[in-house]
């Protein structure tokens, strides 16, 4: 069903796997307390003691990057998951029943695509305010149309197929056909969209946190770290490199996964 043996997919799986492993370990253990300040080791360059050096407060950058990547990953994952669940239900129902609700939602959808995702996220932040949960809410809302559109299209297509017709003739209920029979057939198409959306979420979160309207202190975030790091570029370039590098690796991993799954790579 899905060709997972191609090189692109495997490269993506390795990168994502390693990142995920580091993040998971980071949940229970990091070399240093990410927030522990150390006046004796401010702006230390990378060494064995501090793999990626320390920041302006003497905090261990590696530990902070691990924690930040975890936070970014979690925000992206939760918002994509929220968008996915709502989008699948909405798209499934409208695709199955059609009618004016379907028409209306698709019009709304078309209009929403006119706003670049970062712009839409900024508007939602303007309305609901910044902070971790609002970011998740805004991004989740952003992904609903994406998933709804794909699921709606696929459901409308599958609806006409023989296996659905025969299930209907056998008296299987609509909801059961929709979510038990049809949905599994859409999964391959959804997977690459999930990967792209995840990347969009990582980039949007990082961008907004970098701009200062996203995740707020003391919550960790790669974007916020980049913002801080920019002030110390000359004295501690490794700070910016590590936090930016973590974003690149996250995005690259999922981008390769998506491409390996035969989807698009565009964010």
């Amino acid at each position: 069903m899905i060709d997972t043996h191609n090189k692109t997919f495997r490269a993506g799986a390795v990168i994502t796997g390693v990142m995920l492993a580091i993040i998971l370990v980071g949940l229970v253990w990091t070399p240093y307390d990410p927030n522990a300040m150390n006046g004796a080791a401010k702006m230390a360059s990378p060494s064995f003691a501090h793999l990626l050096g320390t920041d302006n407060f003497g905090r261990d950058i590696f530990s902070r990057v691990v924690q930040g990547a975890g936070a970014t990953f979690l925000i992206a994952a939760v918002s994509v998951a929220a968008g996915l669940v709502i989008g699948v239900v909405l798209g499934g129902l409208t695709g199955w029943y059609g009618g004016w609700v379907d028409e209306l939602l698709m019009r709304l959808n078309d209009t929403l695509t006119a706003f670049p995702s970062i712009l839409l996220a900024l508007v939602l932040i303007a309305i609901f305010g910044s902070g971790k949960y609002n970011i998740i809410f805004a991004l989740g809302l952003l992904f609903v149309p994406t998933f709804a559109r794909i699921v709606r299209m696929e459901v409308a297509k599958q609806k006409e197929l023989d296996y659905v017709r025969s299930a209907q003739l056998m008296g299987v209920g609509s909801m059961r056909i929709l979510f038990v029979h049809i949905l599994p057939n859409i999964v391959p198409v959804l997977l690459s969209t999930i990967a792209i959306s995840f990347n969009n979420a990582v980039l949007a979160e990082a961008s907004m946190s970098y701009l200062g309207v996203g995740v707020q202190p003391p919550d960790p975030s790669l974007g916020r770290m980049l913002n801080e790091a920019q002030s110390y570029l000359l004295s501690a370039p490794w700070y910016a490199l590590s936090s930016g590098g973590a974003i690149v690796l996250l995005v690259l991993g999922f981008g390769l996964l998506s491409e390996g799954l035969g989807g698009e790579t565009d964010a």
Partner: peptide
């Protein structure tokens, strides 16, 4: 996979 603002920061440096 590199976000423009990160490239921007690298360029600044």
């Amino acid at each position: 996979a590199v976000p423009p603002f990160f490239i921007g920061i690298l360029f600044t440096y």
